[in-house]
Amino acid sequence: MLNKHCKSRIKKLRLNRFWEYIAERTLLLCASAAIVSVLIISVYIFYSGLPIFGKAGFREIVFGTEWKPLEGQFGILPMIIASIITTLGAVALAAFIGLMTAVFLAEIAPAGLAKIVRPAVELLAGIPSVVYGFFSLIVLVPLIDKYLGGGGNSLLAAVIILIMMVLPTIINIAESSLRAVPSEYKEGSLALGASQIQTIFKVQIPAAKSGIIAGIVLGMGRAIGETMAVILVIGNTPQIPTSLLDRARTLTSNIALEMSYAEGLHQEALFATGVVLFIFIMLLNIAVTFLFRKAGEGS
């Protein structure tokens, strides 16, 4: 009797363990979906984009200044330069405005006001990029054309719209890293007689530095990868820009503009554009991971 009871009990346990095993493996499978996706995406982008570097030459593509895909000239230097200028321009300004807004939200704003501003920032983050693009096509481009000339479709229009788009990213991350600074720092500084502003700029911001920088780098990723807003306002001229009012074409708009038209070498060249963009993004990602790890250690 006892024996029988034990046996059924063991059986039950075994069954449980079997189920446990199946469940764990299934969950592992789910968890590896992310890895598999990254691998497949990388493999396919590189597989489709690399051959052209062999056929047309690495230098001719990355340092070539002429983009005439139907005539076999695949220089994407103008797009690389335009992408870098728009990204840096937008992020430099957005970093300043964003950090100040984060300080405002974390330290200065009265609680009631912060309750209004924060949802506003969240809404800013949620608005689809194509709405930003449409807005600046209708409002910004004519404004620039009217006051500064040159048609309005320009690097400047792209920079302005990108500022609005990366602001929420920077604000959110900067604010939470400011909040993560231990309150003893602040209290200590205030107790020593420093003013609130001094405490913010000399104690809290330096303490939250890694997090803030990570937010800025994340913003760079968003800016360089933005497509639909930029394509509508930048003019899409594949030429190295010499002023902020010049038309230009970014890496992303190059792909979106011509992808559906392209075939053969032209298509491969667009994938090559994707490869270059992908490499930029990977570098930024690695930087972010590194910075966040540092921020984690700091606090």
């Binding site: 481009v141 054309d145 048609g151 309005g152 003019g235 899409n236 001229t237 010049d246 038309r247 503009l257």
Partner: peptide, 28 residues
């Protein structure tokens, strides 16, 4: 190869409608 002689700084509009919109919005 046939090489296009189009001026390099031309504004590139995607689609007939975009050409229309751009010309309608710019006097020159």
């Amino acid at each position: 190869k046939t090489i296009s002689l189009l001026i390099a700084n031309a504004l590139i509009a995607e689609g007939n409608g975009a050409v229309l919109a751009n010309v309608a919005g710019k006097e020159n």
